[in-house]
Design a protein around this nucleic acid. Structure first.
Length: 563
RNA sequence: UGACCCAUGGUGUAAUUGGUAACACACCAGUUUUUGGUACUGGCAUUCAAGGUUCGAGUCCUUGUGGGUCAACCA
């Protein structure tokens, strides 16, 4: 239901408007071709998911195609390991790129030809200034830059020098190729940008073939052009690159791909900076890149999020050019909504105390049916055992309950979900004075499905039979930070907002026997608790479950308000 | 002492391109319920400011104000 849930009137964002207008004017003969161009230097996160969604969904909407292109122009930062992880994440999100995955590095030959053409046409020159000198000559926002002494070399000399760069005659950092544009341009990027640098480094794809590598600006637009990309959508921070993007395409006289920029999606309490994510991993504040608290796609997956939920979240948050901070409430609402439809209902007691049914026959065990999903009759049922002694949650019994407490208390009636109505009679306490055992009587004629007891109860509780319950470890996650925008504080490091309680491990929970044979990817709803999924750390001896998200809980909210 | 982008409720997106603010989340109040879940009902903004054009402006113009981005041989 997830994706088709919204359709309604087909909301148009500014990219749709551009494409529809292009389609109408037959700008590219009705062709729509987009691309997702990650640099393989890290794992994909929720922000990438948005970019992926925009490109793939938009292309799909107009019968177009989307390429996957690894933007791998900097050999020292990139690695094959990331290439594979990125592919897996995109597929998991539900998208298939056009043909084979592509690599900017496969265009190095073509890009080199382009560079020579630029030189021959007098639009590029080899500069021998030091990095410091080049920075110095760049000027500032307020002051124009100054021309490099190498700016007016002849095309012949430039070509010779550039070829020597390629041949490996020069050491790293000694020479660069720069586009000859305008050292006084208000846009700093147009002040004779460096387009090729010497880098004697091994490349994950091209090996040792090259010792000069193109810069982003001299690779991205041209790669788009080579692939015939019609609409190249990227985030706002590349806006200032657009004039350069257009400049190269014009000077080279190649296919006119166009760049459009959208605002990246920010989510409250999440960070998407690679550098900071890495810091969390390195400082062991999380258990790796796929820690269920991480904003990475692999983390969200391990947490139990569904791909269709992430897609719908992307859809609901829209596409626009203004800064935005999406609330986590929306993400959680979407995931709950989807999980509600597919999650198998099970009962798990998180803080067990024993409930003894004094009038239940000693040694008797009943098998009772439990509906797998009330939203979906086809999901069927599973059986649960029921006997004289069962586990209930500690906070489902109170000696001195507040008003409107519908759970168990002395002399109060309550229904045990799928079983019988019971009435609490007495209780026992442990050495610390805490309730350890509740004794009750049950009403045989109130059996679920054939209740003719006439007793009305306000509350229904979950429970687990002591004869078949299995111990499980629960990993309860909360937001990773205590502040919605942890990296927006100039005076404080984002780690100061690390939420120490973002992971709470519960190792005393007891689950109904069904859990013992739950599938690895089966979405579960622990009734009255939340949605869970099996974690990969589980072993045959020890079942570990991650909490995806809590159930909405108006009772808890009300209680909180009263304090 | 620059250039560019942006500005609708608590949050996020809409508004037939000038025709009288919609949807979702959140929140509040209820109904239903063998999950205090789900479902359902109702409530919740005159569009940053000030001028202007117009019969009519969230949409156009002007001037402000506020926020963001840009000076890596990174992408």
């Amino acid at each position: 239901m997830s994706d088709d849930k919204i359709e309604e009137k087909e909301k148009k964002n500014f990219i749709d408007e551009i494409i529809q207008s292009d389609l109408q004017n037959e700008t590219h003969a009705g062709r729509v071709h987009m691309r997702f161009p990650p640099e393989p230097n890290g794992y994909l996160h929720i922000g990438h998911a948005k970019a992926i969604w925009i490109n793939f969904e938009t292309a799909k909407k107009y019968g177009g195609k989307t390429n996957l292109r690894f933007d791998d122009t900097n050999p020292v930062k990139e690695d094959l390991e990331y290439v594979e992880a990125i592919k897996q994440d995109i597929n998991w999100l539900g998208y298939e790129w056009e043909g084979e995955a592509l690599y900017t590095s496969n265009y190095f030959g073509q890009l080199y030809e382009y560079a020579e053409k630029l030189i021959v046409d007098g639009h590029a020159y080899v500069d021998e200034s030091t990095p410091d000198q080049i920075a110095e000559m760049k000027g500032t926002h307020k002051l124009p830059g100054t021309d490099s002494p190498y700016r007016d070399r002849t095309a012949e000399e430039n070509l010779l020098e550039f070829r020597k760069m390629k041949a490996g005659d020069y050491a790293d950092g000694t020479k660069v190729l720069r586009a000859k544009i305008d050292m006084a341009a208000p846009n700093m990027l147009m002040r004779d940008p460096i387009i090729y640098r010497v880098k004697h480094a091994h490349h994950h794809n091209t090996g040792d073939k090259w010792c000069i590598y193109p810069m982003y600006d001299f690779a991205h637009g041209q790669s788009d052009s080579i692939e015939g990309i019609t609409h190249s959508c990227c985030s706002l921070e590349f806006m200032h690159h657009r004039p350069l993007y257009d400049w190269f395409i014009e000077k080279l006289g190649i296919f006119p791909s166009k760049q459009y920029e959208f605002a990246r999606m920010n989510v409250a309490y999440m960070i998407t900076s690679k550098r900071r994510l890495l810091k969390l991993v390195e400082n062991n504040l999380v258990n790796g890149w796929d820690d269920p608290r991480m904003s990475t796609i692999s983390g969200l997956r391990r947490r139990g999020y569904l791909p269709q939920s992430i897609r719908r979240f992307c859809e609901l948050t829209g596409v626009q050019k203004r800064d935005n901070l999406q609330e986590m409430d929306l993400l959680e609402s979407v995931i709950r909504d989807d999980l509600n439809e597919i999650a198998t209902r099970v009962m798990v007691v998180t803080d067990p105390i024993k409930l003894v049914i004094t009038n239940y026959p000693e040694g008797q065990v009943e098998e009772l049916p439990s509906v797998n999903n009330p939203q979906d009759e086809a999901a069927g049922k599973h059986m649960m055992s029921f006997s004289k002694e069962i586990w209930i949650d500690r906070d489902d019994f109170m000696l001195d309950p507040p008003k409107k407490y519908f759970r168990l208390a002395p002399d109060k009636h309550v229904r045990l979900k799928g079983a019988y109505i019971v009435k609490a009679d007495s209780y026992k306490t442990d050495a610390d004075g805490r309730v350890s055992e509740v004794h009750c009587t049950y009403f045989p004629e109130s059996k679920s499905g054939s209740d003719n007891s006439g007793i009305k109860v306000k509350g229904t509780m979950h429970w687990v039979d002591t004869t078949s319950g299995v111990p499980v470890e629960l990993r309860l996650y909360d937001r990773l930070f205590t502040d919605p925008t942890p990296n927006s504080h100039e005076d404080k490091d984002f780690l100061e907002f690390y939420n120490e309680a973002s992971l709470v491990v519960n190792d005393m929970a007891i689950a109904e026997a069904y859990l013992a044979k739950v599938r690895d990817d089966e979405s579960l709803q622990f009734m009255r608790k939340g949605y869970f999924v099996k974690d990969k750390d589980s072993t045959p001896e020890k079942l570990i479950l991650n909490r995806t998200v809590e159930l909405r809980n108006s009772w808890a909210k009300q209680q909180k308000k009263q304090k």
